[in-house]
């Protein structure tokens, strides 16, 4: 098997950096492990002792309150001590390098880094550095790097699909929106392929598709009505407002007209199709409020499942058969 920095020599998860290259068995193991964690939220004491005494550092070089909070809740429900580092206001702005920051936190007995960075590959760099310095007991979770990957979002999306649809191998899944800038879309496509979804569609204007999209094993549609016909799952992507200022899109009204999900377009999908969105939503841009709040939307369950999936990932990283 090719060297994969994410797996240790027993084939167990060492770091979670990207879904690309992870075998189906590893993805399935994460989803299976997440299932019993969903029950913890219903208890009087919403805490398990698995990460007691462990220190989890949330290293967010890019702001994301929601993702940071769900990681924080997951780690705290596992009884870890959680430290949130708001890097933009700390040492990095005084000139410290990324790896110096990591070394300093290792000296404070860190056990896990949850990393969000605007540059693709930053979590890899940290994982590589830990391996090179013999600190295999410290784990890295990618919480979103540049345009590259957002593996826990991809995993929680797969958990959600499995929860509502069961078998992956009979599904048609459509991903709609700004694929070009979306690390979420990349993680979703890799996960859907690995788990055996036979048809993955991508629906977007040409200006919001990466040039290499044809190599990703997806069917590309520029007409949303055509692309949604008969699908089981619709995964909406957030249209990042900052894209609107460039030449990529004319206006949010026009985007909504052609690529916004309305009840009328949703009716083209299967009657029991589910609608997903990674949040935060732009109502009236990529999704109509009537759909977002409608009976087919599973957007809030996604958030709840996200905590269980992150608990599963952290537990699998921490507890390994030595």
């Amino acid at each position: 098997m090719a060297y994969n920095p994410q797996l240790n020599r027993n084939g167990e998860l060492q770091h979670l950096l990207t879904i690309e290259g992870l075998p189906r068995a590893v993805l399935t193991r994460i989803l299976d492990t997440a299932a019993p964690f969903t029950e913890v939220a219903e208890r009087e004491v919403k805490k398990l002792p698995l990460l007691r005494g462990k220190s989890v550092f949330n290293l967010f070089f890019e702001n994301s309150t929601r993702t940071r909070t769900t990681f924080e809740i997951a780690a705290k429900r596992l009884s870890a001590d959680v430290f949130n580092l708001n890097i933009s206001t700390s040492s990095t702005s005084k000139g410290e390098t990324l790896l110096d920051t990591v070394d300093n936190l290792c000296a404070m007995q860190a056990d896990m880094f949850v990393v969000r960075h605007a540059s693709s590959g930053a979590p890899y760099l940290i994982a590589q550095h830990l391996a090179a310095t013999g600190r295999d007991h410290i784990h890295v979770v990618n919480a979103g790097d540049g345009r590259h990957a957002h593996p826990t979002q991809g995993l929680l999306d797969m958990y959600t699909i499995r929860h509502y649809k069961g078998d992956f191998t009979k599904l048609t899944v459509a991903i709609v929106g700004d694929v070009l800038h979306s690390r979420v879309a990349r993680s979703q496509i890799h996960a859907l392929h690995t788990l055996g979804v036979p048809e993955v569609r991508v629906i977007a204007p040409k200006t919001l598709l990466p040039v290499e999209v044809s190599k990703m094993g997806v069917h590309v549609f520029h007409d949303m009505r055509e692309g949604l016909r008969g699908v089981d799952v619709i995964m909406m992507l957030r249209l990042q407002n900052e894209r609107m200022s460039g030449a990529l899109l004319p206006s949010s009204q026009e985007y909504f007209k052609y690529f916004g999900l309305t009840q009328e377009k949703l009716a083209l999908a299967k009657p029991d199709a589910i609608v997903m969105h990674p949040g935060p939503m732009n109502r009236g841009v990529e999704i109509d409020s009537a759909v977002a709040d409608g009976g087919q939307a599973v957007i809030l369950p996604q958030v709840t499942f996200g905590i269980a999936v992150r608990m599963a990932v952290m537990s699998l990283l921490t507890g390994q058969s030595a």
């Binding site: 492990t33 019993p36 029950e39 398990l48 002792p49 699998l316 390994q320 058969s321």
Partner: peptide
């Protein structure tokens, strides 16, 4: 499984069930 004292050395069991 979530409360076992050998989690640190043996990890999680593969066949987990939801407590109910």
């Amino acid at each position: 499984s979530f409360y076992r004292d050998d989690f640190g050395s043996r990890g999680l069991h593969k066949d987990l069930h939801r407590s109910n």
